[in-house]
Design a protein around this nucleic acid. Structure first.
Length: 216
DNA sequence: ATCCCGAGGG
DNA sequence: CCCTCTGGAT
């Protein structure tokens, strides 16, 4: 089976098993998604959702968030990872939105990564989810699952390298869905520790299953 | 002990 | 490339 066939097999499987694949972060607009994704670094979506309901009430717009008191915001997110950094990033992000972008969320990767707390992964999430741009955000799940199945080559050792190979091999119109497929597969089946290969429909094409599981 | 939709800085 | 930030769940 060549690479093209492998991608097709994986896509067909996900199309059938996950016809609707969406983020589990709760948001109602691009501003809320941006805040939620920044908060999601090294933290589960469920814990992020616990904090954003209050944050969105207290700071419903970039203008409000730009004027937030550090300690007030910190107290709302102190129970998730890196509260100090994230508080600083959120306020700085909102301030730059007001100063450089007229309080609106820019919709290009180049502009988004200028914002404090927004890196390539977050910028790819925003532009693909909000604007349906064919960008692939590579987080810990997408990285791990792509490597295990063998969707990307051995030499792809960084998120950027994985991103480029995935974008090259997945049809443009499916990249947005594929992003969520890989995340949800990684979150519930191809988990980091003791992946649940017994309930996985991809073992037939999976390098990890062939090279690691079958040999133990 | 390891992991969770990373980013910034050296 | 490396390191730090940093809390809760399993």
């Amino acid at each position: 089976m060549n690479k093209k066939q492998k991608y097709q097999y994986v896509i067909d499987y996900f199309q059938e098993s996950m016809p609707i694949a969406e983020t589990e972060l709760m948001y109602d607009n691009p501003y809320q998604l941006l805040v939620a994704v920044i908060l999601s670094a090294q933290c589960t979506d469920k814990r992020v959702n616990l904090t954003t309901s209050t944050i969105f009430k207290k700071y419903p717009t970039p203008a409000k968030l730009a004027k937030a008191n550090f300690d007030d915001l910190f107290s709302l997110i102190k129970s998730i990872s890196y509260p100090n950094n994230k508080t600083k990033h959120l306020i700085g992000m909102a301030q730059m939105l007001m100063e450089k972008f007229e309080g609106k969320i820019p919709m290009t990767v180049q502009e988004l990564i200028q914002l404090p707390g927004v890196g390539r992964k977050t910028a790819n999430v925003i532009t693909s989810v909000v604007d349906e741009q064919p960008n692939m955000a590579v987080d810990t799940h997408v990285f791990r699952v792509s490597k295990r199945i063998g969707l990307v080559s051995e030499k792809a050792t960084t998120p950027l390298a994985v991103e480029k190979e995935l974008v090259k091999n997945i049809p443009k119109e499916l990249i947005h869905k594929a992003h969520h497929w890989l995340i949800l597969h990684g979150r519930y089946t191809c988990v980091a520790r003791n992946p649940k290969c017994s309930i996985c429909g991809l073992t037939e094409v999976c390098n990890y299953y062939k090279n690691v599981v079958l040999k133990n």
